[in-house]
Design a protein around this nucleic acid. Structure first.
Length: 778
RNA sequence: AGUCCAGUAGCUCAGUGGUUAGAGCAUCUGGUUUACACCCAGAGGGUCGGGGGUUCAAAUCCCUCCUGGAUUACCA
């Protein structure tokens, strides 16, 4: 068992590519641009198979476009991933018996940045190991100054356009993470609970003397303390007569929750439960909406730590789950529980820590999204979604969009760039007439009311996606190289090179479907809003790798496959080929270590085949081929007098191979007259055409399959076998087909093709500079 | 509940109007030892989830049902 290339050779090849600057984009070049945006992996640990797949796909396309003669920009970066990073990092600290609180802000931050550096190193190692041909000189981290400036600009524009507001609203709160989260950051789990039917006594019964009551069904009796109304469906036959009256809260002794008005609202479903609904605006989204429309007060029975408040007297400080049982006991004592039913429903939990999410009121920042979504909807057709059905999925989300809650009570991220005057704005109120300033640094200008410099910054940070949503812009130097909307003057000019004009919109972006709303939909909205153009022309969704049972690969399930293990075992090129074979757009491929090993093995064998083809044609060349004389450099050695940069190369560099064969004076032995020769050249032509087409359409799984079939079964098994009887005569054709095969295969198996290409009698300085093959007319 | 995706060889998957439905792995038979045993030639293995329809022609398009999965919404 031996791999085709040893680690050392691979490293050397990669180093040379980098040193020669083959991966650099050249904004000044006259070549047509082709830009690919690397999704920044989250700063949370080792790269996983999903990353490996994304990067392998991006790299193949980048290499292909470069060989086609484009000025390619493949721009890398890493995302700080606030909430995920804190989750991972705090767990590590916990192992040392440390925590955020124990370390304090400054020390914690220092340690966090150290951890960031460690993770960064492991990313870089993997990238170079995989042969990723990115322009490292342009690499960005989402907490870089440059991005912070862009985020400031984003914030300011939203503020000036009156799209930004701050206030106490109901949000999804994760008591464990201690922050508000977005609904897209939640998931649902089925839970078996009870549905309690509770009687609320009507204050003034109808004419009759006996007391009447209204029964409501609830799964969360512990929130009864914070009820502020009872709602029924309009014109409900049974309850119509109670509307306008009041009911006693069975638990509360607090004045504003003591008597509950009975109201009508069509958002109540008449067929569920009893058709009457208790309204708890402080702990339920729908209730909050209803409460707002009916001007109901908002009360809190549960606080941000998930514990009962003083609204509950005896239960204060108790965890909500525990309090439920206690509440039921209280209700039983009062004899107001009519019946209890089993009830299964989905409960929202935090996607990160699986804690039950508590809707509650919190002071947060929001962006109004309607206008942005509407604009995005208008332009959605300008983006080529792969697969196509994602257009519809994204469009549906835009149609039902709600405001974006952008503040998070965390430390790792962009601090909200708002400063309040400590003296005049103690409540940290927000508004154009309030004493506040938007700025990254502490303002130097005094407060206009008290004339003092006592500014304090907003404590919260911004949602990660507030910055990653700018990724297509910030990576190219926005806002310093592009005008903000409404012809507004630029904040500053900081000498950024103007990549924007050349590379925006990006030609290609890809991602996993999981973050289509969080990231992709937002990049589209922000790109259109700030730049008036879609951020990318082709949006590719690859599938999520799953295990054989169809479950997501994850650390906790232990069903994941480490890309580095595979690479160590089989070499990079076979692993890349394996990933392409799984890269059919929009499909979720199922795999295990074993199935991946099988594929890797077959592609490793393919590499060996290629080496043997090379050996047969070149090393065992029976002729002193006339082509040999044209050699630019002796086989097997790396040319040392390279051009500084590929830019300076003339286009003629590529023409000699085909011309050689067309021109009898250069190759007297090259005659395509034998049927076998015709057949193989025709097959190669077909392969060139079809591989090119499939790459243009991002069908990498088909392109690799065709090359595999052509090289192994058509070229090696058939043509080479037949050629043995007329070996000398076929030598030029063998060399021609081999050269073109290597070039076609290079985007997918960069290392082995480079290694073999270097040893061909005539070649470029590197296969990365070789022109993409064209069909040979004869 | 809505929407979307999938169901093809023992397994993992390509193929999405047009020869006899393919690949890798697995199974079986034979061959080759100076390009390659990490090989070559060949074989077996499929009512393309079920049913109905459109068409000269359907795995492919339409309808319907079944199964699995994603996703969205509600859930008092």
């Amino acid at each position: 068992m031996q791999n085709n290339l040893d680690k050392f050779t691979q490293e050397k090849i990669y180093q040379t590519w980098e040193e020669k600057g083959y991966f650099k984009a050249h904004p000044g070049s006259s070549k047509k641009p082709y830009s690919l945006l690397m999704p920044p992996p989250n700063l949370t640990g080792e790269p996983h198979m999903g990353h490996a797949m994304q990067h392998a796909i991006l790299d193949a396309l980048a290499r292909f476009k470069r060989m086609q003669g484009f000025d390619v920009l493949l721009l890398p970066g890493v995302d700080h991933a606030s909430i995920q990073f804190e989750g991972v990092f705090n767990k590590i600290l916990a192992k040392e018996g440390l925590s955020k609180q124990k370390l304090g802000y400054d020390t914690w931050m220092k340690r966090a940045w150290q951890f960031k550096d460690e993770v960064y190193k492991s990313f870089h190692k993997t990238w170079s190991l995989m042969g990723i041909s990115a322009d490292w000189s342009k690499e960005i981290f989402t907490l870089d100054k440059k991005v912070a400036e862009a985020v400031l600009e984003e914030f300011k524009i939203f503020w000036e356009q009156d799209l930004l507001y701050k206030g106490a609203y109901i949000v999804q709160w994760c008591p464990k993470c201690g922050t508000a989260i977005e609904d897209v950051e939640m998931e649902y789990v089925e839970k078996k609970e009870k549905l309690y039917y509770v009687k609320y006594q009507i204050k003034e019964s109808a004419e009759k003397e006996q007391l009447e009551d209204i029964t409501i069904a609830t799964a969360r009796p512990e929130t009864i303390f914070a009820d502020t109304a009872i709602a029924v469906y309009p014109n409900h036959p049974k309850y119509k007569k109670y509307v306008g009256k009041k009911a006693w809260n069975p638990l509360s002794s607090k004045e504003n929750a003591l008597l509950l008005p009975i109201i009508e609202d069509k958002r109540v479903q008449k067929d569920f439960g009893t058709g009457a609904l208790k309204i708890t605006p402080g702990h339920d989204l729908l209730d909050y909406e209803i409460g707002k429309d009916h001007n109901l007060p908002i009360l809190h029975a549960i606080d941000k730590n998930g514990r009962m408040t003083n609204l509950t007297d005896t239960l204060e400080g108790m965890r909500a789950e525990e309090a439920r049982n206690k509440t039921v006991e209280l209700l039983q004592e009062k004899g107001v529980i009519e019946k209890v039913e089993d009830y299964t429903h989905s409960v929202p939990v935090c996607e990160r820590c699986k804690t039950i999410v508590e809707p509650l009121i919190s002071e947060e920042w929001f962006v109004k999204m309607k206008p942005l979504a509407q604009k995005a909807l208008k332009h959605l057709d300008e983006i080529n979604f792969i697969p196509k059905n994602y257009r519809k999925i994204i469009a549906n989300w835009y149609k039902e969009i709600h405001d974006w809650s952008i503040s998070r009570s965390l430390w790792w991220g962009h601090r909200i760039p708002v400063w309040y005057c400590e003296k005049c704005n103690t409540n940290h109120e927000v508004g154009k007439d309030k004493d506040m300033i938007i700025s990254l640094e502490k303002p130097t200008t005094p407060c206009k009311t008290c004339k003092q410099n006592s500014w304090v910054q907003e404590e919260q940070i911004l949602d990660t996606w507030f910055s990653s949503g700018l990724w297509p812009l910030a990576t190219l130097g926005w806002p310093f190289v592009a005008k903000a909307p409404q012809g507004k003057p630029l904040t500053s000019q900081k000498g950024f090179e103007d990549n924007m004009g050349k590379y925006y919109p990006w030609n290609f972006e890809l991602t996993a479907p999981e973050i289509k709303y969080l990231w992709i939909a937002r990049m589209i909205m922000l790109g259109l809003w700030f730049k008036d153009q879609i951020p990318f022309k082709n949006m590719f969704f690859h599938g999520t790798l799953r295990d054989l049972q169809g479950r997501k690969m994850s650390k906790s399930l232990g069903n994941g496959v480490d890309p580095l293990d595979l690479i160590n075992q089989w070499g990079v090129d076979p692993v890349r080929m394996t990933l392409y074979s799984y890269a059919a757009p929009g499909r979720d491929p199922k795999a295990s270590k074993q199935t991946m090993d099988e594929r890797c093995k077959s592609f490793r064998n393919f590499g060996t085949k290629l080496k043997n083809i090379y050996r047969f044609i070149i090393d065992l060349n029976p002729t002193n081929s006339s082509l040999q004389k044209l050699s630019k450099s002796p086989p097997g050695s790396w040319p040392d007098n390279d051009l500084a940069c590929p830019e300076e190369q003339s286009d003629e560099r590529n023409s000699f191979k085909v011309d050689t064969f067309k021109n009898p004076s250069l190759s007297e032995s090259f005659q395509i007259s034998h049927p076998d020769d015709k057949k193989i050249i025709e097959d190669l032509n077909k392969t060139i055409k079809s591989v090119t087409k499939n790459l243009e359409e991002f069908k990498l799984h088909l392109a690799t399959e065709e090359l595999y079939e052509f090289i192994w079964h058509k070229f090696a098994d058939v043509y080479i076998e037949k050629s043995k009887t007329r070996r000398v005569e076929t030598q030029p054709i063998l060399e021609y087909v081999l050269t073109n095969s290597l070039i076609l295969l290079h985007p997918f198996m960069p290392f082995l093709t480079e290694e073999l290409y270097q040893k061909l009698p005539r070649c470029e300085k590197s296969i990365t500079l070789a022109p993409w093959p064209k069909e040979l007319k004869f």
